[in-house]
Nucleic acid binder design. Structure first.
Lengths: 370, 370
DNA sequence: TTTGCGCGTGAATCTTTTC
DNA sequence: GGAAAAGATTCACGCGCAA
């Protein structure tokens, strides 16, 4: 394979720059088959109705930017089709793309990727360790976003740094679900007023894993929805070249300043990646879901004086009380608190056994995975 | 709302049966708006090939030389469109659907759900605690599947047992990512040869969470791709009615045997933690009528910063405002809304107590009368 | 200097009933 | 059917400040 020198590459490509303009037009102005990897975080087309307030009455600062508004699925689909086609033309034959989205748009992107002949390699779930809760209690906490990783075509010999990712993951093969915190604190860029500079800034840890896994040093990475430049920042740290496209002046300005401060091989993002692990917490309800205890089954207190029945939602019902294993135990003992795991016992083969034994079984299973 | 009796329901619907045949034809033979929830795990191995028609209605031959990737998408989309339309017709106005799939098919299903007017409520990731590793080291371990939960239409008042799921999850609201093991061991059904009876048998724990969360006892649940009947088994345990459709004789046989052994849990165990919304309404004025609070008595805000006087008609009067407990609270806090029941406190024996306590007393009395 | 508490906030398709 | 009122509802963190 012929590898262009850095100088030859720079002659034809505007490397390590942020290009101003509409992403489709700008992409169409770049040479075909020149890009190794594309990372794209397009508008999600959220369809928000009224305002939303937290239970403490504070107002949620929603994504209500003009750039996220589309009048119909048809118009959004047209947009998706056009930018994906432009992106595909730019990819080298062995190139690949990552797109990220939520249920509002990701199904439409995924279907269009397939329609255009991209070859899906994985869908990868970013499980947020600290998502915004569902304030009204009407749905599940929206705790993840979905990324799709696809090569340009089925025959592409795409880059996958299996061993590097395995090393990042404490020696175990990297899975399709990644637990990472959202972008907050010092990493979150602010504007002159101290407000967030961009409503949807992605964490560097996410891009770190994407770029370590699917590019090599010297590769050219294109981000057609550059925003405040997380892709460029991580690419620079990791010794990759980037091209950003962004049509909003304010975002370009923030990104330019950010990039000027980045040094290659900055280790900070990496440390975040590894230190944030989801602690395995075992809910009593899991024992019921998994059939280790059955709804209707009786539990006895350690002292043998009380009993209670298991319900389908993982609560207990006693003579005059319903609630969690801890609440019911405390109530029956007239105590301010109670550790239900050690208090309650179930019967197996005529023997009474603490339910904590079942929790230990689940924890052992979970531990096997690391 | 008119609720059909069990007998009336059974007269029109083939409850708790496995129907033989093509799922679309069978669904079209059932009465419209008769189903509360649909759970669908459609096939996505493109072996549908031999049983499907092209959009122009020509039959696809099993050894079709013209067959390519794009033909297969078209045919799969046609199939998806048809079964989803049939499913939507069957749903009651407040009904909902769950579909499950992997990146091979879930994007196409999600887009078609949106196209048909279903309203996506969440995408939920089933994170497998024990997935099959990726042996070739060329991709990420495929460690999850995606479910989409959608109501029939945007206006549907879908069922969501928020408190029950919260209880199941140790008192923290349930997230969109569920960690559950795959179906193995005794739960995994075997055929006469000791081989697995079905290639993609879903774990009962998954259906347990789906059905506890989005149905009530007595609801009718349809599974158009019944397989070995996990949906039916869990529905039966949980005191729900099911209808299964399965065209493979071998699967129907295994499922029938499986279902015959299932026992419903105790009625008591099936009652789950209820939300406050399910409680009967009590007007604040009732507390005054009953003499639990006296006209002229003072109430204090939870934060101690404000006070107001009770009036004989069950309204409050503050320094510069009169109105309901909610209106006065909201005004004093400068908030868009306020739950007066938890905001206001009254004095008894020198202690400040939330007025919600009085409401609970009344509700308890009301419950006793039934 | 350390610990703890209060406050702010994050890609959100986030209510139900009565008049 | 539309407007208004009633009433239900949050988790994980980072930061600043007080003790």
């Amino acid at each position: 394979m012929v590898t262009k020198t850095k100088a030859a590459k720079a002659a034809t490509l505007p490397l390590n720059q942020i290009l101003d303009g509409d992403c489709i037009e700008v992409m169409n102005s770049l040479p075909a088959e020149s890009i190794d990897l594309i990372f794209a975080d397009p508008p999600y087309n959220l369809q928000l109705r009224g305002d939303l307030h937290r239970p403490d009455n504070s107002k949620v600062d929603a994504v209500d930017n003009d750039w996220d508004q589309f009048d119909s699925f048809k118009i959004y689909d047209r947009f998706t089709k056009d930018w994906l086609a432009a992106a595909r033309r730019l990819l080298k034959p062995n190139g690949a793309i990552w797109v990220i989205g939520s249920y509002h748009n990701v199904f439409r992107m995924g279907a269009e990727l397939q329609n255009q002949g991209f070859w899906i390699l994985n869908d990868v779930v970013w499980r947020k360790s600290n998502p915004m809760p569902n304030f009204r209690g009407k749905r599940f906490t929206n705790a993840h976003e979905t990324m799709i990783w696809a090569s340009k075509q089925e025959a592409s010999k795409y880059t996958f740094n299996y061993e590097a990712l395995k090393a990042l993951n404490e020696g175990v093969q990297m899975r399709s679900d990644w637990v990472l915190p959202i972008c907050t604190g010092h990493e979150r860029l602010k504007d002159e007023n101290g407000d967030k500079a961009h409503p949807t800034q992605k964490p560097e840890s996410l891009l770190h894993r994407v770029l370590v896994g699917s590019t090599n040093p010297g590769d050219v990475i294109l981000d057609p929805f550059f925003g405040t430049g997380t892709t460029g920042a991580v690419a620079k740290m990791l010794g990759r070249d980037f091209i950003g496209i962004e049509r909003e002046e304010a975002y370009r300005k923030v990104a330019t300043k950010r990039l000027s401060k980045i040094r290659k091989f900055d280790k900070e993002a990496l440390e975040v990646t590894q230190s944030k692990r989801a602690e395995p917490r075992v809910a009593f309800g899991v024992l019921v879901e998994r059939g280790m205890l059955r709804p209707g089954e009786e539990l006895w207190s350690q002292n043998g004086r009380h009993k209670a029945k298991v319900r389908a939602d993982g609560t207990l019902i006693g003579d005059d009380i319903k609630g969690s294993i801890h609440q019911v135990g405390a109530h029956l003992e007239g105590a301010p608190s109670c550790n239900g795991w050690t208090y309650w016992q179930f019967k197996r083969d005529g023997q009474k056994v603490p339910i904590d034994l079942l929790r230990q079984q689940i924890r052992a299973e979970m531990a096997q995975q690391h």
